[in-house]
Amino acid sequence: MKPRRISIVLTVAVLIAISVVMIFPFYWMLISSFKPIGRIFTVPLDVFPREFTLVNYRKLITQTPFLRWYFNSIFITAAYTVLALFFATLAGFGFAKYDFKGRNVLLVIVLASMMIPLHSLVIPLFMLLIRLGWVNTYRGVVIPFAANAFGIFYISQYLTTVPSDLIDAGRIDGCSEFGIYRMIILPLLKPALGVLTIYFAMTSWNWFLWPLVVMRAESLFPLNVGLSTFISDYRQRYDELMAASVLCVVPIVALFLSMQKQFVSGLTAGSIKS
C-alpha cells in the first residue's frame, strides 16, 4: 500500500526543518568567522554574509597559540589512541583466549570500573600526579586513562566470535604466544580496531576537565582548554573563536563524510560504556 502523498510531504518538511536547526550552528559559525568583529553583533544582523574578511583567521594564527594548541590536541589524541589500543588488544586477547586463575574476578572488576565517573577520580588523580611530577606534561594527560576498561571489554567480546582453532593452528605452526597476538589476532581485529580507534580518538579529542586541571602552561593546552580561555563574561573573542571553530570542525567533518560507517559505529560503540 502506498501511503498518502500528503504524509510523505509532511514528513519531508519536518525532516528539512530539523536538518535546518541542526545545521544552522555550523552555518552561523562559518559566516561569523568571516565577519569583522564589529559586524558579528551589530543590529541589523547580517544573516547572509555581506562583508568577507580573513582577518579573524590571520589574527588567530599570528596572535594566539592556536597552531600550538592544535598540535597538542593531535599529539594527545594520537598518543592516547595508540596506547589505549595496545593495552586493550593485548589484555582483551588475554582475557578472551586464555583460561587462567582469577580471570573472572579480574574481568568483573574491569567491567565494574566502567561505572566510575571521571569526576570522582579527578581530585585523587591530580594529587597522585603531583607526587609523580607529571603535572603539566603530556604523559600526565594521556597515561592515567590509557587503561580503558571499555576497550578490553569490546576486544574480548569481539574475539569470542573468533574460533580458537585458528590460534591452536598457529601454535602447531610454531608461533610464540606473542607471535599469535601479532600475526593472527591483530589482523583479525582490524574491523574492531577501526571502531575503537574512532572511539578513543573522539573521546580524547573532546577531553576537557582533565587537561584543564593537568596542563598548567598555555603552550601545552589542547584546543578545548585553549579555546575556553577565549570565552569570558567580561571579554568575548568571538572573531578568533569562530575562526578557530571552523578550523577544528572542518577536518573532522571531512573525515566523517569520507568514512561515515566507521564513525557511526565507533561513536555508538562508545555509549555502551557505562
Binding site: I130, R216, T229
Partner: peptide
C-alpha cells in the same frame, strides 16, 4: 579571563608547577 586565571593559579600553586 578572570575566573579561569584564578582557578589556574590555585591549581598551579597546589601542584607546585
Amino acid at each position: 579571563p578572570v575566573e579561569q586565571m584564578h582557578d589556574n593559579l590555585l591549581i598551579s600553586l597546589i601542584a607546585g608547577v
